[in-house]
Design a protein around this nucleic acid. Structure first.
Lengths: 205, 205, 205, 205
DNA sequence: TATGAATGAGGATTCATTCAT
DNA sequence: CATGAATGAATCCTCATTCAT
């Protein structure tokens, strides 16, 4: 026998290929979004960056919005994973969680840009809205758990919303403060996150 | 007596007329911005809404961005005035200030959309940037005063930044939570603002 | 008698004022045309440069084209005067005339730009066309006289046309040769004019 | 035999199709330029004349200027080929070359309009400027060769410049002499070209 | 399924000209 | 007469999306 390697069925290979290409597009888009305002990124640019044709992008995504959403969801998965990892640590604390999240935002400007975009009325299919809501709920669940763990007993969901809002607000307000360097901004936003974190932690006492 | 009414010179009248028309354009833009994402508002729409021609818009503003900025600045003046008014009240408190600001944002969605836009890198003439910065500083001065008045002694500017961020974050995060009514959103954001306000007030103890 | 100074009638003064203002506009336009392609000069620019309002310009000229034509005609008068002056000199020669004309063109780029513009189909009122033709004939008469003076007996008008063409061609071809300095261009065009002049002078022998 | 016709690969066919469409646009533009001042030709007109959409124009050309340049270069190739053909003839002479060139200009008014436009400062990418210069040099080389062949030994490049200028000047000066018929103009310009040609030929003696 | 050329509505902006004051 | 704000048609160009190959 010439071939003893157990072959994966063709259909599986194809699926893998497909996933790979989808991943390719996704990553290309993420990188572009990291470079400039995601609303100014064009399909052509993404196609070029991903090394595929424009048409291919439309084979994987209904339209640009769906691709944007997917990028957003992937980023959300990242932060979810980071949070889960952090929460597993013995030093887990609300403060650390805040730092973690603000660091994530600093690295993923497109994330909160998109969050803002979708929240502020970016058109979305009902299916897309569903996905978005599911993801936000998942994120909120993590945060709420941390809030509860920090001692809050009453209104934990509401307080979790307040915390989440506060952290997001740091970025929208200071992410690109005109005339400041990236490192300076990072320092400032982290300092603000620390203040917020402290407030929500001390709250329980 | 032939004419004792003190006549305004013609030049003054003309200036008034000009100001009035500028106001007309400004208000038309504000209303449109309230209806949808301000970035999707076109010159044609503004002109139509203001009842003037496209060319007239450009007689009053160098370009669309400058008009956007002016709308932003006018809104900022509004909130500044409201704050000043509130601070003059005997019941002034940080909490009330938070409510006030969040109410303002609820009524002026375009304000924080624009704030986000300009902060996140929206192109602006150096003159425009200067105006923007001046206004932000003025706003921050008010907030800081309130923060100090609430008992904070150390790092008042930084804490004021944190508070400002937190309040803005509420809107960016929940202003148009998909599937919620405006009144519901208003209630939710006010509740969150109250939590934030409480936190920053209790901070002093 | 309180006033013995012989007064010019009011109507004369007014006419002088009017002429002065017309001159003002004309000169402003000429200077602007010297700075850049005359087709890119706007009414607003001319008005500003002349220190009058846009409307005033339209009081003196039917439209922009008529102003352009007037500038052209004024320039043509200049070169005519220069030629007349030169021809009165004892050293007058066809060669010197060529130099004179090319120098004039170097100083008045707008002149041949406009000549080209009007010749190549720039719309003109029939009255304007008439003025233009009259001026071209006057210029041609001078040139022809010089051609005849240089010894040419046959086909003097035709040869004069050829000479005129050749000189104009120098400018259209080399006036802004990319990457060359103004002085360099001036030297080159003068050298070419000398060659042309020589050819037409030697012709007679 | 199933298929012995050597099939062109698909990619070649596609390229041909692309070239054909580019040609389509090019020709449409050339015809429009022949009808009126090329600066007044709009993208819409070209698109309509070519039977393609506006967007398609921009698939083939960065911007209008690049299209203008391409039209110019294609015309230049034409005259270059005609010159090469003429020079290969046993009856080649400077006079005939002059006639040839003036005939070409009469048929391609846009050519010298564009030459004038680009020479007089029409914006061009550095790549475009490079192409333009290369083409002008090629043309000048041909002319210089003819000038040399006619007996000129000294300053051949300079004299070639003078000749080229003179010929171009004929067109700029008389191409559309107001109130003259096309045939009349053609006759006049040819006569002038003959005079110029004679002068430059006789020069050698 | 991948391709990428074609599409064309829609964007911001310009500017000669008018006309009420 | 002088003014200059108002006008709006017309400009070039962009870009998400489609669809024939």
């Amino acid at each position: 026998m010439t071939d003893q390697v157990p072959e994966k069925p063709l259909i599986v290979l194809k699926q893998q290929e497909k996933d790979a290409r989808r991943q390719l597009i996704l990553n290309a888009a993420r990188h572009l979004f990291a470079e400039k305002d995601f609303r100014s990124v064009t399909v052509r640019e993404i196609a070029k960056a991903a090394g595929v044709s424009i048409g291919t992008i439309y084979n994987y995504y209904e339209n640009l919005t769906e691709l944007f959403l997917d990028v957003f969801l992937k980023s959300a998965e990242d932060i979810l994973a980071r949070i889960d990892n952090e929460q597993a640590s013995p030093h887990a604390s609300l403060s650390r969680l805040c730092s973690l999240y603000i660091d994530f935002l600093n690295e993923n400007m497109a994330f909160y840009q998109m969050m803002g975009h979708f929240m502020l009325g970016g058109e979305l299919s009902s299916e897309g809205t569903e996905k978005l809501n599911r993801m936000m709920r998942a994120l909120m669940d993590r945060l709420e758990a941390a809030v509860v763990a920090s001692g809050t007993e009453k209104d934990s969901r509401l307080i979790c919303h307040a915390l989440f809002s506060a952290l997001n607000g740091i970025m929208i307000t200071y992410a690109r403060y005109p005339g400041r360097e990236a490192t300076e901004i990072s320092r400032h936003t982290r300092r603000l996150a620390a203040i917020i974190g402290d407030l929500f932690e001390k709250r329980v006492r």
